[in-house]
């Protein structure tokens, strides 16, 4: 429908589908029911929602249009899933509570949204919430991760959103999930990379040092690379923790060590993560790893050193 009609007709369609108006909100949230929140957190969230609804009703109206947007993007999507994260992000900070409201308190009925449009809506809301890096979203995100049946894309997006907030509590929660076996562990391991904290780097380094299966090692390496991502650390938001050196050094050390151990796709992912972290200690770490490595691993380490020397993020 995206293309066949004018803007006005889209609005009409959205209203017809029951997405655009507040009347259509039927609860619970599109991801969880607020009953899964601790009582105090639930009450606090509802108070905040009411307050923002009074002061910025237009923000709710805009977020209320998200399902229609998801339906539209889904029809024209390329790749497995559409994303409306950018438009939601563009709504700014005032959209936080309207989005949390839709996620956990009173969401619209699914209506005729396809499976992929419904998923796109929920994932995008969580991603956009995470981008705002607001601690007031933590209870909702933790509740998503704590309960309910595993749903990888939702759990990954919730973990990533929590990771972006990056508080001590968020980091602790994600580290615990990454360490413990469980149905949501993979989602946590994937999402944790946006939690750029020294404790997270240390935890992931320890997990990698245990030499998990190559598939898991690849996921951990990617996340460790994200944690130590040198360009992310250039930004004030991330650098504010003051943990850059500890985090990136730990990531580099663990990744170079693992590079010599794995092969195939896992080694490839680990190598990319080494480049993303781009820590100055890397040449020395490679040299040290090379000393005790078998011939084939030593040759790959030489290649890694050569790639690191011409790291494309440093040209």
């Amino acid at each position: 429908m995206k293309h066949s009609t004018t803007k006005a007709i889209f609005l009409t369609a959205a209203l017809t589908l029951g997405f655009a108006g507040r009347e259509a909100l039927a609860g619970p949230g599109v991801v969880i029911d607020s009953s899964r929140l601790p009582e105090q957190a639930r009450a606090s969230l509802k108070r905040c929602i009411a307050k923002v609804r009074a002061s910025h009703p237009e923000a709710f109206d805009r977020v209320a249009a998200a399902p229609a947007m998801a339906a539209s993007f889904d029809r024209t999507k390329r790749g497995p899933l559409a994303s409306i994260t950018l438009p939601l992000k563009a709504l700014g900070r005032e959209a936080l509570f309207p989005m949390l409201n839709m996620v956990a308190v009173e969401g619209p009925n699914r209506g005729e949204l396809s499976d992929t449009a419904w998923l796109a809506l929920r994932v995008s809301l969580l991603e956009a919430i995470g981008i705002l890096r607001d601690r007031r979203a933590e209870p909702v995100l933790e509740a998503i991760l704590d309960g309910g049946p595993p749903e990888y894309e939702i759990d990954r997006a919730a973990a990533q959103a929590l990771a972006r907030i990056g508080s001590d509590e968020a980091a602790g929660k994600l580290i615990a999930m990454a360490r413990a076996p469980g149905p949501k562990r993979l989602a946590a391991l994937t999402g944790i990379g946006d939690c750029r904290r020294a404790a997270v780097a240390e935890a992931l380094a320890n997990l990698l040092a245990r030499h998990p299966a190559p598939e898991v090692a690849g996921v951990i390496a990617r996340s460790l690379g994200d944690v130590g991502n040198s360009w992310a650390w250039r930004t004030a938001v991330v650098a504010a923790s003051g943990e850059e050196e500890a985090t990136r050094a730990t990531a580099a050390r663990a990744l170079v060590s693992a590079f010599a151990v794995y092969d195939g796709q896992a080694r490839r992912l680990i190598g990319k993560a080494v480049l993303v972290v781009d820590h100055p200690s890397t040449p020395a770490l490679i040299e040290a790893a090379r000393a005790g490595a078998p011939a084939d691993a030593a040759a790959e380490l030489d290649r890694l050193a050569e790639r690191f020397a011409r790291n494309p993020i440093r040209r």
Binding site: F10, A65, S72, A90, D194, W231, T235
Partner: peptide, 25 residues
């Protein structure tokens, strides 16, 4: 997203906002 929802959600963003965005970076 204007044609999807009737809303006009401006996409404009400053150079410094991009450089300060940890997710984009």
């Amino acid at each position: 997203s204007d044609d999807a929802t009737g809303d006009y959600i401006p996409a404009n963003i400053s150079i410094d906002a991009i450089l300060a965005d940890p997710d984009l970076m």
